[in-house]
Design a protein around this nucleic acid. Structure first.
Lengths: 339, 339
DNA sequence: CTGAAAGCGCTTACAG
DNA sequence: CTGAAAGCGCTTACAG
């Protein structure tokens, strides 16, 4: 291919100075209409696109946003990405990925180093990294804006969140409305604040409906399929078995379902199972899983675009924070309580 | 935070010229050992990291690699990413993501525009984009090196591939060895060359074992759960039913399994089902799916590091192409043929 | 509304 | 083995 056009070529073609071309590129108001038109014509004609490195070098911006994640549910990650990508499309910003093991040693220095080396202008944090206060503090010290997806509290400047607690509350109400009274709960990973919020919603619903919480029915899982399987065994071997198990995510619900198959427990006739996330498996497994759908892609899109606003100093345009609503999705795994 | 150190600061601290510092940064051989040590000490002391934009501007490199994908199986995407990311770690390169709808109108101009605007130094293509000849031609014209993951042929310079055909061949042999003679095949998406390779392996195995191919038993799917469900219905309503169904991926196998549940067909007692990919669902569904595991992350790691070698002119070090071996994973969904 | 000059932090091309 | 000068393609700061 022939040499890429530069701002000089455009200036020469349009018969103006490079500064004027620069003004047009950056949408600065102080340009005469006719001049702008001429310049835009030359830009198009020469297929000019500004050199990012030169822009970045001079203006101290890299136009790079980091998406940091601790390999969570793969579907979740995929949705986070496409949402963030959508927000970047049409802007000058690009997304750079970085996987981080939340509790690995040296995490903080690796992340700060990455941010400095890649010269990121901002980062998006996903759970459970959002809950890692030390990490957040270290990035903040770098003076790099952070956008939080599902943060543990609402004190940050830029974030998107889902109403995990409300959704878990609604799901629990739904379970109770089907006649269930002995409802077990399998908690998510202990380092995820969202997991805690889900449990809180569960407790609140029981409380409001005057069903007392049985501590032996609320077990600590870790979001993995295996933990669901293992804890199902624990719950279903009790004399006083639950008639429904509310799992904090779909993978654990799938684990419960597997245990039931292997032990001839019919779902939902003998046991109802519900999940959370609406992962792909919730639809592809049989029976399909009653779960909570979160608008993860939209949350992430907002997180990214709010971050870009913040970075480019357009914070005034629209909100930098937003709560998204989740919804209960009814499928086959939830049924009436057995008599 | 205080001002970031520049090459000048390091030069001043070490008492050398900036050119010498540059030599150290770039690992150029022509530097005295003692000089190098002094400079490295200053770099560490000042926490210096080279400014990417300045490097890029001068050397015409952005250190950015694009990962282009058409939202395939989400697990697949996640593995591709972490593999590519691994390869980038430790190098100066960063990964930039771009989702592209393979058959959307304007795809080519959007992609070429993206490559130019983001100033990518190379791109990694995943299926089915690898099979889109027009797209490949357009990128090649841009003079941007492409690394192919699972390309349709071996004529390109940089690629990683899995032996889809061999794996499908081995899987079919395995099915036959369990006594199955009436084996149906659900094909993958018609635009994926890998899907074709899987079918070829299936046919070859039947041929070698003198089982004639029944065209009514080989149906066209599209890798989706729904297509698996729908085609299972078609196959299992026949008078002369298959005793095994080989699905070109796990999602379609899950669709078949759902159909069987709903129609009281026991797996594997009455029907064996096999998949391909070893997605997470293959393990989490019940019965778990006998499938083919591909080292997707490793393939992608190779694809990315080969691309980096190619870009940095180190093509001589190691191969730019590699074939990875897949393996059959035996699980519950494959059993002996019913008598 | 427009432009000439300086400079961002590096690497290139050249010299010794 | 080392360095002085030029320049990559833009934006900044200033002037008019």
């Amino acid at each position: 291919m022939n040499q890429k056009a530069t701002i000089k070529d455009v200036a020469a073609d349009a018969g103006v100075s490079i500064k004027t071309v620069s003004r047009v590129i950056n949408n600065e108001p102080a340009v005469a209409k006719t001049t702008r038109t001429t310049v835009l014509k030359s830009i198009k004609k020469l297929k000019f696109t500004p050199n990012k490195d030169a822009q970045g070098l001079r203006s101290k911006r890299s136009f790079l946003i980091g998406l940091l994640y601790d390999n969570p549910n793969k579907y979740y990650l995929s949705d986070v990405q496409s949402g963030s990508l959508n927000a970047c499309a049409g802007t000058n910003y690009n997304l750079v990925l970085q996987e981080c093991k939340n509790n690995s040693s040296g995490l903080i220095s690796r992340v700060t180093n990455f941010i400095k080396t890649a010269d990121l202008n901002g980062v998006i944090l996903t759970p459970p990294l959002t809950d890692n206060l030390k990490l957040v503090a270290a990035i903040t010290k770098l003076d790099v804006p952070i956008s939080f997806i599902a943060p543990p509290n609402k004190t940050y400047e830029v974030w998107s969140s889902a109403n995990d607690k409300d959704a878990a509350y609604a799901m629990t109400n739904k379970i109770i409305s089907m006649g269930h009274k002995k409802i077990a709960f399998i908690k998510g990973h202990k380092d995820h604040s969202a997991a805690k919020a889900r449990f809180d919603g569960f407790c609140e619903s029981l409380d409001k409906q005057n069903i007392s919480l049985d501590a032996s029915m609320t077990l600590q899982g870790n979001f993995s399929f295996e933990s669901g399987f293992k804890l199902a065994a624990e719950l279903l071997k009790k004399k006083n078995k639950p008639t429904a198990i509310f799992c904090s995510n779909d993978s654990m619900a799938a684990g419960v379902i597997k245990y039931c198959y292997q032990n001839n427990i019919a779902i939902p006739e003998q046991l109802s199972v519900t999940g959370f996330d609406d992962s792909m498996i919730a639809q592809e497994i049989w029976p399909s899983i009653t779960t909570v759908r979160q608008p993860v892609a939209k949350m992430s899109e907002h997180a990214a675009s709010a971050l870009i606003k913040k970075i480019s100093g357009n914070s005034s345009i629209g909100d930098l924070t937003k709560i998204f609503k989740s919804e209960v999705v009814l499928r086959e795994s939830l049924g009436k309580a057995p008599k």
